[in-house]
Amino acid sequence: MHSPVTGTAAGVPFTALPPASPGPAPLIVTWHMLDAPRSDAAFAAALPMNDVPAWRVHLGMPMCGARMVDGSMAAGLELLREDVLMSALWPFVWQATEEFPAALASIRAQLPVEDGPIGVLGGSLGGAVALRVLAHTEIPVFAAAVVNAAVRIRSVVSLFPGDYPYDAESEKVADDLDFVTKAGVIAERAPLLVVSGEQDHPALRADASDLTAAVGARAELVAIPGLAHPLADEPGIEPAPQLPQTRAVDAQLSTWFRRHLPEPGRHH
């Protein structure tokens, strides 16, 4: 396999995996989870999609990987404790979506990728970013996939201890990050694969099922036996050997993206 290419795109750290054959190739962009694997390098090792003839560019989420404060996740975890939704989950998703168009332009300038539609993939909170790119941007997408995704942010907030004190502002944010309500827009944008671990949190499994049903004919739901929420062992910051359940996810994603890859030279 080719070695990963690392760099930054408009300030966003990335780990890029080149396709096996040289020459311009389609582009698939990913956003990792806050659980393990919680960096672009670790996510690239967990879900490399090696047999997809495309560039797979794994982007770092805010305050993760190369953007950790003082080289640790402590500052990010502190934000989760301070206000899980308004200090952490929402700003991370918002920033990752907002910085993406400039990062995409920079990736296109740095790597030999085709200028047609891209693939998008997100895990957990990164899944909310991928869904938000579908729901809130005009960037052309040939196919999308999410794994154990934050489909409804209220379900993610409910995984943290205590009753969350919603107010008018946080209710509005929670509505914005409920992608089941945006299924109509998502259905028009791209075919969507929804991967759900059979041992994932029950609320997230229910949301995955609801999203698939709401998107309709252009969505497929795949359940992965034995897969809990994380896709790698702790600490999940450095690349690690692929776990058996994660290998099953990788195979599903590879098949999905191969099936939907744009034909060479046919961009729009």
Rank of each mutant, 00 (worst) to 15 (best):
R108A: 14
A190W: 13
P19Y: 02
A149W: 03
G126Y: 01
R132D: 07
A143K: 08
I139V: 10
V93D: 09
V146I: 13
M33S: 14
A203N: 08
T181P: 13
E171K: 07
V222K: 14
S21F: 07
R67V: 14
A228K: 02
V84N: 09
F100T: 11
P91V: 04
M33T: 11
L89M: 12
A240I: 11
W90N: 05
A145R: 15
S124H: 10
E99G: 07
R38F: 12
V195Q: 03
S254M: 09
E138V: 13
A174P: 01
V57D: 05
R247T: 04
A9F: 07
D115H: 15
L111V: 06
Q95Y: 12
D35S: 07
A190D: 13
A228N: 01
I28F: 04
R67L: 11
D233E: 08
M61Q: 14
S124L: 10
A203D: 15
G122Q: 05
A168Y: 06
V129H: 03
P191W: 11
A219W: 07
V5N: 14
S106F: 09
A144M: 06
V84Q: 10
E78G: 13
Y164D: 04
M63E: 13
D51K: 10
A150Q: 05
L34Q: 08
A208G: 02
F179W: 03
C64Q: 15
A190C: 15
M49W: 04
P26H: 02
M86T: 09
D175Q: 06
I118K: 00
P117Q: 06
V129Q: 02
A217L: 09
A20P: 04
W256A: 11
P239G: 08
L211H: 00
A232I: 00
A203K: 04
P37C: 11
P225I: 00
H136R: 15
A46R: 01
D210H: 08
A88I: 00
K182L: 15
R38Y: 06
G236R: 11
A143G: 15
P62V: 15
W31K: 08
D200A: 08
A214W: 07
K182P: 05
D250Y: 05
R56I: 04
G60W: 10
Y166I: 04
P112K: 13
P262A: 00
A168N: 10
H229T: 00
E188L: 06
L204N: 04
G23T: 02
R132P: 05
S170M: 06
R266V: 07
L59Y: 07
D175F: 06
E198S: 07
S209P: 07
L34R: 14
Y166C: 10
A213K: 08
A44R: 03
L193C: 02
V12R: 12
A248C: 02
G126R: 01
A36P: 09
G11M: 05
F179Y: 15
L27T: 07
T15Y: 13
D167T: 02
S254C: 12
R81T: 12
G11R: 14
